[in-house]
């Protein structure tokens, strides 16, 4: 992750004007040092004011490098503020586990829409990944489109860490909300029997209602050993 942090840092910094660079450098230093989460919360919230929301122009090579460091991570379509927020989260010192978990949890509990997007995007790079299962499952319950996108589309965390019922919820929610199914990471790896059965039922329900069934549904159904 150290490589990833410096990669993202270089992308973020080349997009900032000198004033914003100084601000971020100072903030990141205090985030690294603090035990409480005040500096993190302040800088995390203020980020778009300092960075703006432009496309940071990530190259294909940089995307590949990110993916090498954190399997499945896709940063290429992130805005600058999102990228910088994730980077800032990576600066928090995880040595004191309770303090670390608490400061990140606090960000979730008072987050606005774009902050939630950044927080869920950061799940694959946070320390103590096993501790974020509940948070991720909670995020899947969100009905805010862009928040769901951040969890469902090209995010490697769910496939890597979610337990089966939560994973199955994610896939179902993706169908239910018309997400692009092919952008879910780890579909093949996480195919399972229970999911196949749920999908079969769902397909029948849709047919009974005279609604269409996505072809992807049949593929996943088969992967899990179900289907016609």
């Amino acid at each position: 992750m150290k490589n990833l942090s410096s990669l993202i840092e270089s992308i973020v910094y080349r997009n900032l004007d000198p004033g914003a660079r100084d601000w971020l450098t100072a903030k990141a230093a205090s985030v690294r040092e603090e035990t409480g989460g005040t500096q993190l919360a302040l800088a995390f919230t203020a980020m778009p004011r300092k960075t703006g929301k432009k496309d940071p122009g990530i190259t294909e090579a940089e995307q590949q490098e990110a993916e090498r460091d954190c399997k499945g991570l896709y940063i290429k379509d992130w805005t600058l503020d999102r990228l910088a927020r994730v980077w800032l989260l990576m600066q928090a010192d995880p040595a004191d586990k309770n303090a670390y978990l608490k400061k990140i949890e606090n960000l979730f509990s008072a987050a606005e829409m774009n902050e939630l997007v950044a927080l869920y995007s950061a799940l694959p790079v946070l320390a103590y990944p096993e501790e974020w299962r509940g948070r991720c499952a909670e995020g899947i319950r969100s009905n805010i489109g862009i928040v769901l996108d951040a969890i469902i589309h090209r995010n490697p965390y769910p496939a890597e860490w979610l337990e089966e019922p939560a994973w199955n919820q994610l896939v179902m929610k993706a169908f239910f909300t018309d997400k692009d199914i092919r952008q879910i990471s780890g579909l093949e790896k996480r195919a399972n029997k229970a999911l196949s059965a749920i999908l079969s039922d769902y397909a029948r329900e849709r047919q009974a209602a005279g609604r269409s069934v996505k072809p992807e549904l049949r593929e996943i159904e088969k992967l899990g050993g179900g289907g016609q």
């Binding site: 009905n143 489109g145 862009i146 769901l148 169908f175 909300t177 018309d178 609604r211």
Partner: peptide
Amino acid sequence: QIDQSGRFEGNSILRGG
């Protein structure tokens, strides 16, 4: 613009299809 794509990608208010 977000709205247009958002609608067809679906969500709780304007669900699939």
